[in-house]
Design a protein around this nucleic acid. Structure first.
Lengths: 209, 209
DNA sequence: GTCTATACTCTGATAGAC
DNA sequence: GTCTATCAGAGTATAGAC
């Protein structure tokens, strides 16, 4: 408002973040080149170091933005009073929608989390840790209700959550391997994923029925 | 036999492969340094280029050795006449045992498969593709038998296989995230995984019951 | 805030002696 | 086959003009 350069500044910074996002996700942090990011953003390489001191800082900023964009929403939904079956539907739907559009995202996240564990911690603020605990507690109650009513073997809420996430996410991370293994071309893999989006919720509900 | 250097040669080459395996898996291909691999193998950097022309070639050799060491065995077991439930037990058991000892392996495989899809193709020879098809065909028959007998909704063998793999493998790839999310230390995560090894087969069997 | 030019470091790769 | 020495290129990062 006061500074006329305010808008421009944010645009340049955001532009760099957008470009870095794409290049990091495509090549990994180690494989990415600052020059390529700069080119992709249409700015000079020096500007990257002006806004973000180093490559590591830039990578951290990109990571934080990615994680912040959809993890908190999922936490909240999973901690809500929604019936368990609806949560499964929404979880599957949300991640399929997200990852269909960003196929390399998950391989990136998985890899960098393994390689640079500290940035995972950076993302999980105290507030988010509390949100995670709320989610687990709520899920535990819902699963307990169900197993009590139907006399099924007890199931840990944590294990269920991990299995749910695994079933949705892993196929996107393993997409190239699935394609090779099943002998599918790019379009056939898309169809396979689309089918999965439809079938998976029923499969998971059956397991906790 | 004829050459007295035969044994030494193989040892040096194997030593380099062992070292490269460890460093690549720990740092990723892009993050790994030829110097570090050479140091770890106790040989000179130049020797790496003598046996493997370039870093890319070395990475390919490492990948082929890793994949060859346990994928074909799994294919064969899954294509056998073993009952479906036993296959689930063995699959879960085999991968948990393997990955407990090589925690970074999966993040590496997933990442490099996404980044360098061509090396996945290198691994899947025509013979292995046939083995994969045999496995799928057998699983499809077994699942069909079961759903016919118990009147359950039909389930694609491919989808089931992916879900099975996802449930077993993803937790290892996502280990750092799971730890952060659930607030577990290294020992607690190990316990979580151990619990998972026990509970997962029952969960999966219930879904196709 | 944004650019040009450049310093400095590191890495993969090769040449050549033994 | 294995080593020492070295190079060319690429990379991150900074200095300084505008």
């Amino acid at each position: 408002m006061v500074k006329p350069s305010g808008k421009t500044k944010r645009d340049a910074k955001t532009g760099i973040l957008d470009a870095a996002d794409e290049i990091f996700v495509r090549r990994g942090i180690d494989g990415a080149r600052m020059q390529e990011i700069a080119d992709h953003a249409g700015v000079n390489k020096a500007l990257l170091h002006y806004y973000f001191r180093s490559k590591a800082d830039l990578a951290r900023a990109v990571w934080l933005r990615i994680a912040s964009s959809f993890v908190p929403g999922i936490f909240q939904m999973m901690a809500s009073d929604l019936p368990l079956d609806d949560k499964i539907d929404r979880f599957v739907e949300a991640y399929h929608a997200k990852l269909m559009r960003h196929p390399y995202l998950l391989a990136y996240v998985v890899n960098e989390a393994a390689r640079h564990p500290e940035i995972v911690g950076d993302f999980l603020s105290a507030e988010r840790r509390r949100a995670a605990r709320r989610m687990i507690r709520k899920l535990r109650a819902q699963i307990a209700d169900r197993t009590k009513a139907k006399r099924v073997a007890p199931l840990s809420a944590e294990q269920f959550l991990v299995t749910l996430a695994a079933s949705c996410l892993f196929p996107f991370a393993a997409r190239p391997m699935i394609a090779s293994l099943l002998g599918l071309g790019p379009k056939a893999v898309d169809a396979f994923m689309e089918q999965r989006r439809k079938d998976l919720p029923a499969f998971l509900k059956r397991a906790i029925r």
